[in-house]
Amino acid sequence: MKKWIRFLTIAGLVSMTVAAQAANKPAVIRVGAVGSSGKPFAGGINGIVQDQGLLQQEFKNDGIQIQLTLYKGAGPAVNEALAAGKLDIASIGDLPCVIGRAGGLKTRYILGRDNGVNSYIIAAPQANIHSLRDLKGKRISVSKGTKTHLTLNRLLAQVGLTERDVKLVNLSGADASAALATGSVDAIIGGADRPLVQQGLAVDVYDTRKDPIQNKGRGALLVTEEFAKKYPDIVKRVVKAHIRAAYWASQEKNKEALYAVETKTGSSRQSLVVDLAGQNLKEKYNPTLNASSVASFKDIVDFAFRSKLIRQKFDVDQWFDKSYSEVALKELGLENYWK
C-alpha cells in the first residue's frame, strides 16, 4: 500500500511538472514599480494597470498570480530588487533603468511609459530665486540617481549651468520638504504635488509643463532576460495589458477618471489638474518604442556617463526589444494609434 502511495505521489509530481512545462507559464509574475510617497499605489500607467486589475484579468484564466511590489526607495530600490532576482517585470524611471543596465542588470526595455512626467522647482521665498539662472550657487535638494536628478541637469543646461554651479543636497520626499521649510536648502525639485507652495512656505520657480517632451522624465517597462527567454508569450501579454492602460489614458474622455486613479497615490486633485492642463495625453502616454525614445535614451546614457553616474556605456539599440509591443499593438488593432 505504502509503495503505491509513494508511486502515485511521484507520478503526480512528475505529471504536474510536465504539464507546467508544456503550458510554459509561470505560477506567478513578480511585478515591481516605484511606489508613491503617499499611499501604496503606483502612479501613471502602472496605477491604471493596478486600478483596473488589467494584469489579473489577462492571466485569470491561466491561473497565474500577479505579485505587485511597490518600492518607496524609488528607482534605486527597484534596481536592487532586480539584482536580487525578486522581479520579473519592473517599472522604473529613465535614469535609474540606465544606471541599472550599466551596472550589469540583465534586462530588456520592452515598453515606454509615462513620457511627459513633469518636474517642478520650488524655492524658499527668502531665497530670492525667480528663474533657473538664479539657481547658481544655491542649495538644491534632489534625490540623486532618480529621473528628477536627470531633469534638473537638463534644466540647468538650458541656462548654461551644470551641477557644479549649484550645491546639490541629496534628500528626498518629506526630508526635502522639511529642509526647504526650515531654510536648510534654497530650492527643491520634485513632482506636481507641492503642499509647501499651497501653504505659502515656498514659491514656484520653474516647471517643465511647457518644455518639449524630450526634456521631461519618462518611464520604462523592463523584463529580465531570463523571464523573457522562458516566457516570451507571457511577456507579450504583460505588454498588452500595459498598452491597454496607455490607450485608456490617452483619451481625453477619460481625463476625469484618470484624476481619480492618480489621487489614489495621495496626490491632490488640484495639482493633477494643473499638471495635465494643456498636455497632449496621446503624446504623454505613448508607450511605443520609436526613434524619439531611442534617441532620448542614448542621450541619457551619454549624460550619465559624462556625469560619472555610470562607469560604462551600453548599446541602447540592443537593449530595446520592440518585438513584444509590435505584436501586442497589432493584436489590439492599435498599430497606427500613436503614429
Binding site: P76, N79, E80, A83, P96, I99, G100, A102, G103, L105, S141, S143, K144, G145, T146, K167, L168, V169, N170, L171, D175, A179, S184, V185, L309, I310, R311
Partner: peptide, 21 residues
C-alpha cells in the same frame, strides 16, 4: 545618510543610488 556630499556614509549611499554595490 541625510543631505550629505562627503564621508564614508555618503559614499555608501551614492553607491546604492548609482547601483555600484
Amino acid at each position: 545618510l541625510f543631505g550629505c556630499d562627503s564621508g564614508i556614509g555618503y559614499m555608501m549611499i551614492w553607491g546604492r543610488q548609482m547601483f555600484q554595490i
